[in-house]
Design a protein around this nucleic acid. Structure first.
Lengths: 227, 227
DNA sequence: GTCTATAGACGGATAGAC
DNA sequence: GTCTATCCGTCTATAGAC
């Protein structure tokens, strides 16, 4: 599949990255062998090691190719909003949208594999492999810090600890929504085209996340009775 | 580790299940070999095949051992609440608590491995392997249907489609919260003991989820301008 | 029920011709 | 930069002694 009649020269790296993205998403990292991968890409078995050095290095390249631009876009959007706001804190909803829109735009991108990647990404947040989680953490930490700062200024009355938990919940909702495939159908029996409608999904998500972020605080968070 | 001086007879199965739970959580299914597993359990390499038949059958046994009682407890709690309510719809918050409390109780159970299992479970919702996702879906579908029905009666004014999406978001938040380990620290820098405090976590989660479930509906969910 | 030994397939990586 | 051939390790599963 996705085999071309004549392989475009100098695009071997790209072909490998595309095949890897797809197979990693379908089967996971461990279960995807170099033989599967190079066969799908239509390149030689030795090509991965020649171009990337190792399977692990290939995994890193797969994530960097998409994540670096995605995070750059998110940060640029946040900068733009803050410049516009002229020093005033941003509305939380705008911050949420700045973060999730980049992911959701890719959900609709079935052509160049963005949709595939974003599903892969969603599930990789909870990868068992420590090095892979570490890689993801490293690729994200700058962006997370900027959004943490933006939320902190937007919601100064919310205790920082509670805010961080709510950010955690929001990432969870997003990543699960991106990753889940069967479960959506299991719960919702939703028409497939609905899942691909980035615009509708954004409104559903923003509604849910904004409400969660603004949830009233319980008086006694940790203890219900007793001192 | 977890080696006993004298192996209790007839507990080989249990020892294997415990070791499997732990290693599957740490490394994933593919990356956990029978050799690792039997070494950790302190049993012979051939014991897994003798007692369970195959690695896949062992995976299924690991989930069944915990999930079947967990779901039974959830359904019993829902039954209890509905009997008490005497035909009236339940408050959504009570339904949410009935579902998540079973998971959260196990977060605090570091002794008998409940905490380990629940982390494994959280990440397995987005497993790449199709058979494993299918297994999880099968083990859950009854319970999901019952909770769907309870929510539908509790929120008759909410369009079913929107309700299903919000249930999906809620499962995502829960499963991610159970699964995530590093990310929590990355975002929150939270003290570890906080994560283990099931009571505090329940209040945080319930606040977030209830608010999300009750989010106001946007007038135009799918289209913002134009017809 | 438990063990050793091994079959038989497949994994990532590389050497060296072209 | 691409290919074939191959090394060598690990995998699951099983046969057969105890």
């Amino acid at each position: 599949m996705t085999l071309r009649a004549v392989k475009p020269p100098h695009e071997t790296r790209t072909r490998i990255l595309d095949a890897a993205e797809d197979l990693f998403m379908q089967h996971g990292f461990e279960a995807t062998s170099m033989r599967m991968l190079t066969a799908k890409a239509g390149v030689n078995l030795a090509a991965v090691n020649y171009h990337f050095g190792s399977k692990d290095a290939l995994i890193e390249a797969v994530f960097r190719r998409r994540l670096d631009p995605m995070n750059a876009e998110r940060l640029a959007e946040l900068d733009r909003l803050e410049t516009e706001a002229n020093g005033k804190p941003l509305p939380p909803e705008a911050i949420i949208r700045a973060f999730i829109r980049t992911s959701l735009k890719m959900v609709g991108d079935t052509r160049s594999g963005g949709r595939t990647f974003v599903r892969l990404l969603g599930r990789t947040y909870t990868e068992p492999s420590k090095p892979i989680r570490a890689l993801i953490g490293q690729l994200y930490c700058q962006t997370i810090e900027r959004f943490k700062a933006a939320f902190t200024r937007a919601l100064p009355q919310l205790p920082r600890e509670e805010l961080f938990w709510r950010m955690h919940f929001m990432f969870g909702t997003l990543s699960y929504t991106l990753a889940a495939t069967d479960t959506v159908q299991m719960i919702a029996g939703t028409k497939p085209e609905d899942r691909h409608d980035a615009r509708a999904l954004e409104e559903r998500l923003v509604g849910f996340l904004c409400a969660g972020l603004h949830a009233p605080r319980a008086e006694n968070t940790s203890v219900k009775k007793a001192a």
